[in-house]
């Protein structure tokens, strides 16, 4: 089976709806099929990656630590849209630091998050084979 480029587009905040958690589950399951996987965080989707989430008070599972496991599943391209972050008063410092280890470079730790403009992300979308929307 030829490798395809899969893009998972995340546009919802976590917890208020089930979309964010479902997307993460689908990405992790999909990772087993050895496709070329990317994730994009746009609109309220950028809120999913915020640091310091603590759900003890709302009796829901805190799935935010799971994002840091994506690198181990070879999901190493995580696009965050700059305009969405800025509109919400956020910077990269407000987000989790996500990394992956590059097998070809003696397991050097590399950043997974790529901060891109809307125009740049549109270019990335254009190069994908399949889009999944959450």
């Amino acid at each position: 089976m030829a490798t395809k480029k899969f893009m998972y587009v995340n546009r919802r905040a976590p917890y208020g709806t089930i979309y964010a958690w479902e997307a993460l589950e689908v990405v992790l399951i999909g990772a087993a099929f050895e496709q070329d996987v990317s994730m994009a965080f746009v609109d309220d989707g950028v809120f999913q990656l915020m640091k310091g989430q603590d759900t003890a008070g709302i009796d829901m599972k805190n799935f935010s630590p799971t994002y840091s496991a994506l690198g181990d599943y070879e999901v190493t391209k995580i696009y965050v849209e700059k305009e969405s972050l800025e509109e919400r008063g956020l910077t990269l410092d407000d987000l989790q630091h996500l990394v992956w280890e590059d097998e070809d470079e003696d397991w050097a730790e590399k950043d997974s998050i790529r901060l891109v403009s809307r125009a740049e992300l549109a270019e990335v979308f254009a190069g994908q084979d399949v889009m999944f929307n959450f």
């Binding site: 905040a13 976590p14 917890y15 809120f47 915020m50 640091k51 310091g52 989430q53 603590d54 759900t55 003890a56 008070g57 709302i58 829901m60 805190n62 935010s64 407000d94």
Partner: peptide, 10 residues
């Protein structure tokens, strides 16, 4: 408050 904490809003 619990909804702020869940979302990481300090």
């Amino acid at each position: 408050g619990p909804d702020l904490a869940a979302r990481g809003i300090a």
